[in-house]
Write a protein that binds this DNA or RNA. Structure first.
Lengths: 205, 205, 205, 205
DNA sequence: AATGAATGAGCGTTCATTCAT
DNA sequence: CATGAATGAACGCTCATTCAT
């Protein structure tokens, strides 16, 4: 993909995360990207296809491809889970705009083309988690009776809601003057510890 | 509030939950409610004020007013937490449309008027939780080192993400033909058990 | 149909006849009719539907409903043909804008919805002519071997091409300063005589 | 003119005949001709000038240049008329797309540049006819009182309307499965006979 | 109180054309 | 000679809202 297309996608991501897909006009996006209005259609075909392109572009980085981990028997299931958690938290925290867009897209809108993409992403991530859990159970490291679905929604739900409530956290703890990067780091770390404890509770014998 | 207004709000809730605020046109809402288009502005002033009215109307039921519990010293903090969890899960599951609207509103849009309302709701709910936690700590029932913020985001994050991923769960477990009411009940119960375990982990000594 | 709708249709007819359907923008039509741009969609739904409404509105006057003539046996087939010719010439000359629109629509564009309407109009007119011709043949007044199709295309082709070439006629005979009404009357009369002779040639024994 | 230009013109002719000038986008034409979009402007300057080029290119074949006939006194005026009729019918039937474009252009659009060209074409054709008619009158072969204008509009009107109504004719006589070439031949022949009779009526003493 | 009619603003998209290479 | 990239203008249409009744 051309640099210009990527540039437009990145600016579009900001605008759409801030306003939502419907309220983000093509004119808004074009202005933010510093390109002519007609370029959007020229490059992507339509607003909807730009959205699709954005999802495809970012999903590559969002997807938890744990293939290299799965087959490595020198790493314990517990360590794999830890790595997956770490990767997910990192990715969400490193692209909070995209995380918001995905959240909004799941809750409302549900455009057919994006729906299929999101389902695929979700399925892949879910399976990555599930595979490790099943491996852990088989190898007798993990408890048998834990539904992966609840672990999955816990991981995604907690991380995403921490993103949503970040401003609330800042306000509550009066961190307005703290560097945002610092806050993100701190929150990410605390989030990891928090979820790690939960996963241990549900998985480790 | 007049019955007609409430009727419009309820229909608007469905439409907005399905399409999102921006994509839900006043025409859509008027048609769904079976009222004249001009009635919306006539009754509520504007689309935005209808949204505000909807938030106010539903937030009364969403807010976790635990005053009657707080002062009752015959109930243990653990039981209070349990009651709060139960109440929250019940409310989200009983009004999934509104839950979606609130989620979308928090993630995107962020209209000043609604922002303040949502912040208030969040603060109230957070404080309800926090009060109980602090009481538990003071009474030496709960661990000292647990941040209420993470308990809060866990409760809200998990419950809301289970709502978001309900369809995914149905597809995955092939429950397409199961009565939706049944699925809701089952999921709500499992969600309660799941979160209850987490809370125990973080709070109980 | 409301007066305002009819007013818009009449102004639209002028604009579309002058520029052609595609070049006549909704903005042009709205301006010509002195109404707000959005009124066009409000009243007619879309530009295409306005066109359809125009066709339906004018076709009532364009159709050669000769039922009252057909059954009247006191009128000879020759007189009936004469009446039909007269009626057709009159209608085309009295609404030259619409005649042009129909011509252009038949030649190019051919939008499904209008295509069906025009086909119906053509079929009705053709049948009106054909019925009389067949009656004349049966009653032994008319020649047997004349194809109605060529009479039909002669009538419509000649009349419409005289409309098309009216300006050419005016220029050629330097009638720039003659009242248009006069020219129309004169041309209509000459056209009638011309076609009458042709029809006599092909029909009368 | 280069082969490529001619190729573009021929493809443009098809597209414009099918959709009309305004609805035929430069993109459509470029795609149909298999050339780069920018080539159109590059070769012809603009869409309008392409249209002009098309008119100029085709008008050479459309113009009824009867000079060689006019001066030949061994051919009777009646035979000359016949030759002109034949030539006109042939040209229209052999290039129905262009005939449609000319018709549409005369009825609507009327762009200054094309208007002048078409007027010239019309004038030339009209004069070719008129010259022969006048010669016939002078030589006492033809009736005096026939206006050439009505002969002209009869020739052009009937032929062009037969083209317009060709599909109607096919539908009516259920000739859907007959080879189009065959239908054209048959119609052209019938048209010639038909118009020939009319011209005889109006001209021969 | 209730509503059909109307409106200005803005939407996503496509247009013919130009420009840099 | 040829073309991919880019652009300003305009397109048909829908929006939330207002107004006259």
């Amino acid at each position: 993909m051309s640099d210009k297309k990527i540039h437009i996608l990145k600016e579009a991501e900001k605008v759409i995360a801030a306003k939502g897909y419907d309220a983000a006009s093509v004119r808004d996006i074009a202005e933010a990207a510093g390109v002519n209005l007609a370029m959007i259609s020229y490059y992507f075909g339509s607003k909807e296809k730009l959205m699709e392109a954005l999802l495809r572009y970012r999903m590559e980085f969002m997807a938890l491809k744990m293939e290299h981990l799965k087959k490595d028997s020198s790493i314990s299931p517990a360590e794999k889970i830890q790595a997956l958690m770490q990767a997910y938290i990192e990715r969400i925290f490193n692209n909070q705009d995209f995380a918001k867009i995905i959240m909004a897209e799941q809750v409302i809108r549900k455009h057919p083309a994006t729906l299929a993409l999101l389902r695929q992403l979700k399925l892949n991530n879910y399976k990555s988690l599930n595979d490790i859990v099943e491996e852990g159970i088989k190898k007798n490291f993990f408890k048998k009776d834990t539904e992966a679905f609840f672990l999955f929604t816990t991981l995604t739900g907690v991380v995403n809601h921490i993103i949503i409530n970040k401003q609330f956290y800042i306000d509550f703890h009066q961190l307005e003057n703290v560097n945002e990067e610092k806050i993100n780091e701190m929150l990410a770390q605390k989030t990891f510890i928090h979820i790690h404890k939960i996963f241990k509770l549900f998985l480790e014998k």
